[in-house]
Simulated assay, not measured.
Amino acid sequence: MEEVFKEIEKRIKRLEAEIELAEQRLKLLEETGAAHKYRIWEKRKDYSEYYLILIALWLVVGMMFLYYIKSRYAQRIPFSLTPYVVLVVILISFPLGYLVWKFMHREAIESPLDYLHKREKSARIVLNEFYLPLKEALKKQDKERLRLLADTLLTNLSLAEAIENINEGNPKIMAYALYLYISRDKYPNLKDDIEEAVALLRNKPLKALMMSLLEKS
């Protein structure tokens, strides 16, 4: 179990360092005014969408007006409006295409401020809701707390998302590993399942926990 606690301590220290670093960066951005300027820039980017929509509407209204003039004064306007229609369609396709692309990639575009806030929040959640309870439960060999922690990994969406955000592993496989650890005495023939968990786990503390079971088997 010594190796397990070493890995847990490593993760705790890493997360604490990440939280502190994110807080320092956010504080620096606020103090230098960069955060405020970036928010203004973000708003300007949002306004650009409205400008593009207005341009598209202006082109459509202009085309409708030309059709109205053409239909009312058909004899005085002998030329065809087809080239103008094609031109308007081409011009409209650019802003509309950009808006569609931006809408489809909206979630993929993440500002530095949002990134820092998300990393800091995720690290804090994983630290307080997973690693610290895990450390205490393993120290006391409290199976009920470990079972509750495994259940939480499967039911608490914010914790599961935070774990994935900071690449701590797959919450479902992590829960599976905890269930195996809890059941080790009740079901002694779990070697194959434990080996499978070791192969699937990306979370180092829980992988070390599973390895400790294999060493005892």
Rank of each mutant, 00 (worst) to 15 (best):
I182P: 07
F130A: 04
K37E: 04
Y98E: 01
S217C: 00
I92K: 01
V86F: 13
Y68W: 05
N170T: 12
L134I: 08
L81V: 09
R202D: 15
I125S: 02
E9F: 00
L200P: 02
R202N: 14
K102L: 08
Y84H: 03
F103Y: 15
P205T: 00
I12H: 01
E120W: 05
L21D: 14
T32R: 07
A56N: 04
L180Y: 05
S212Q: 11
S48W: 03
Q24K: 15
E2R: 14
K135N: 08
K191Y: 04
L57Y: 10
L209N: 04
D151H: 14
R184N: 04
Y131T: 00
L134R: 04
P83M: 12
L214C: 07
G97P: 02
L113S: 08
K37Y: 00
N170F: 10
E129Q: 03
L190H: 12
K143D: 02
L87Q: 02
P78G: 14
V60R: 13
R147L: 12
I125V: 09
I163P: 01
Y98W: 10
Y179E: 02
R72S: 03
L178V: 05
H117D: 12
I173K: 13
A162L: 07
L153F: 06
A199I: 06
L149V: 09
Y179T: 00
